[in-house]
Design a protein around this nucleic acid. Structure first.
Length: 569
RNA sequence: CGGGGUGUAGCGCAGCCAGGUUAGCGCGCGUGCUUUGGGAGCACGAGGUCGGCGGUUCGAAUCCGCCCACCCCGACCA
């Protein structure tokens, strides 16, 4: 590949709309261009890097016993109506009609189509299990596409679907896919953490997310620093690291707390701390009011609340709704003597003593409140978010809270799709039974961005060798010099013949431009042919990842390149 | 969908508040000469529906209205 013949429009300046490193660098390095919000064109180098990632995924899928297929992007509405998701998916699904008015969508995922494809062959237990996958463009009309390739409306994803005669058999494939995903991440130089995950719109019982910890990640991950426990914050479990409330019982008393509403204000006014205050958050769900109580030093998790309520159709009470619910005194709500409201108590409130809470009376709080004596914490639920200092439920180790980028997600679906789609197999006993399914997704374009997030410096991308768009860049500093030009071309040919992807930069530009472009593009190994070549018959090698520079005799540099390349990250 | 912001040459921006000739700057691009180990120099040159539509005005990039696109925060969500 010659630099002058391939479209690599590098930019000196940061694009105005790029907020994060991967977005900025993929554009500046000439690997992609934005077309519309959350829709990108991959230019030659970006396309090449994406293909490297996808081939690693492909290889690991094949090793795990999955078979590649190609499903259409255009899905007839019929399949989605049968599963019920045509109605559930909502505006996130890109819908369209053909000239006859028949409805279609652009596939956001493909459980329906693949399940129908398998079930139409009327499989018997002898035909199962099978595991089918594709690497395809997916469409989701995200509410807010952002961060370059991290959240797109059109993106690349590998999706696999497995079909089984039993849950035990599903467990086996699930484990193999889990291991394959870990292997993919490793080969792409991504440090991945596997966490328990919510199942969302895909559904099913058990699922795991593959998270790469990163400050630009959109998910919050809670994980143990000592064991393997990790979970998405939406369903994490934790053991409090400190005691809520006081050690001993205190007498209940009412105190005047004029205009003090927030937990910290009340705590400091009463010379106490947020570890003794009950926080109350009011929610409106339909025409019902919900008072949720959590320890004052914690945040309430709306995701957990949604799971408990069985709906996400609720919102925090707004000021203009206060008159609709005269039974509460906003800002001074406490569980003691409260009625006419649905109450929920975080588990940590059980048995707590010496607490401070609203007195359900304007400008008054109670102190010395004790659960069991002054109010009963029922129902007891897990609605609080983990906080720094919490301990692991598995091993008691320290929990860390971090942001993560979700690169993969695997689900045990069971019969969720096979039942409504009537996907059956004939068992050994001759009876038709629903197929047991699993589904496994990995975002390949998101992985590409994640790799750049994890591997870059102030000069540009530092591609790990396995996913670099090309392996070697040969830079001829002065192409007008015959000796340099010939040597550059010779090395270029030789390395291509040795099976490497090589980029030859013999553009008529000053050396600085070529050096900076090379660093920006981030090819693992630079071979520099310049003055030293014409004067001393040597060439320089520069390892992009480490910045290490080596000088070798030009004559036998081919072997040296191969040796050096073997040891670069 | 709520809040905030932006839209002027391929990219990054100034000009707008206080309307007034051929709308500027840097980078990039083209041609020529010089230069070639970390974003070269000189000379000449090309490139613009000032996001769109409508209005006010003798006159609109600039003021007003509507619309569109893009970005950020939130809500939401694989």
């Amino acid at each position: 590949m010659k630099f002058s013949k391939v479209t690599v429009p590098t930019l000196k300046e940061k694009p105005a709309d790029a907020e994060i490193a991967s977005h900025e660098l993929l554009i500046r390095a000439g690997m992609m261009r934005s077309v519309a919000a959350g829709i990108y064109t991959f230019l030659p180098l970006g396309s090449s890097a994406l293909a490297k990632v996808e081939n690693i995924v492909r290889d690991e899928m094949n090793r795990a016993g999955a078979c590649e297929i190609v499903l259409p992007n255009l899905h007839p509405a019929e399949a989605w109506r049968e599963s019920g998701r045509w109605f559930q998916y909502g505006p996130e699904m890109m819908r369209l009609k053909d000239r006859q008015g028949r409805e279609f969508c652009l596939g956001p995922t493909a459980e329906e189509l693949v399940t129908l494809a398998v079930s139409r062959s009327a499989p018997s237990y002898r035909d199962l299990p099978v595991n089918l996958y594709q690497i395809q463009t997916k469409y989701r009309d995200e509410v807010r596409p952002r961060f370059g390739l991290l959240r797109c409306r059109e993106f690349r994803m590998k999706d696999a679907y497995s079909f089984h005669t039993s849950f035990e058999d599903l467990d086996d494939t699930y484990r193999r896919m889990y291991e394959a995903y870990v292997a993919v991440a490793k080969r792409c130089s991504l440090d991945v953490r596997v966490v328990e995950a919510p199942t969302g719109l895909i559904g099913g019982d058990i699922s795991h997310e593959f998270m790469v910890l990163s400050s630009v990640g959109e998910d919050i991950v809670v994980h143990c620093l000592e064991c393997d426990y990790g979970a998405n914050s939406e369903l994490e479990r934790h053991r409090p690291g400190k005691k809520f409330g006081t050690e001993n019982s205190l007498p209940l008393e009412e105190v005047h707390t004029p205009c003090l509403v927030s937990v910290s204000e009340v705590a400091s006014f009463l010379d106490s701390s947020s570890e003794n205050v009950i926080k109350c958050v009011l929610y409106v769900a339909g025409d019902e009011l919900i008072a949720a109580f959590v320890p004052g030093y914690r945040e309430l998790s709306e995701a957990k609340l949604a799971r408990i309520l069985g709906t996400d159709n609720f919102h925090q009470m707004r000021e203009d709704e206060r008159e609709l619910f005269p039974q509460v005194t906003a800002g001074f709500v406490g569980p003691v003597g409260l009625s006419g409201v649905k109450m929920l108590f975080d588990e940590e409130l059980k048995g707590a003593k010496g607490l401070i809470c609203g007195a359900n009376k304007f400008d008054y709080h109670y102190r010395g409140v004790e659960e069991g004596r002054d109010f009963k914490a029922e129902p007891l639920v897990d609605i609080a978010l983990a906080t720094e200092g919490d301990r692991c439920v598995e091993c008691g180790g320290e929990l860390a809270i971090a942001r993560g980028i979700e690169i993969g997600h695997i689900f045990k679906l069971g019969e969720k799709y096979s039942k409504p789609l009537n996907a059956l197999f004939t068992d050994a006993d001759g009876i038709l039974k629903p197929i047991i399914m699993g589904t496994y997704g990995i975002g390949t374009s998101r992985m590409l961005a994640t790799i750049v997030e994890q591997h870059h410096d102030e000069n540009g991308i530092k591609w790990p060798k396995a996913v670099a768009p090309v392996d070697i860049e040969v830079i001829v500093l002065n192409p007008d010099n015959d000796e340099q030009s010939n040597m550059g071309r010779e090395i270029y040919q030789k390395m291509m013949n040795a099976g490497f992807d090589v980029l030859l930069d013999e553009r008529e530009l000053s050396p600085g431009v070529k050096f900076n472009d090379a660093d920006l593009i981030g090819v693992p190994l630079q071979v520099i042919v310049g003055k030293k070549t014409s004067e001393r018959k040597t060439v320089d090698l520069k390892v992009r990842y480490t910045g290490e520079k080596l000088e070798f005799e030009a004559m036998d540099v081919g072997e040296k390149i191969i040796n050096v390349l073997e040891n670069v990250p």
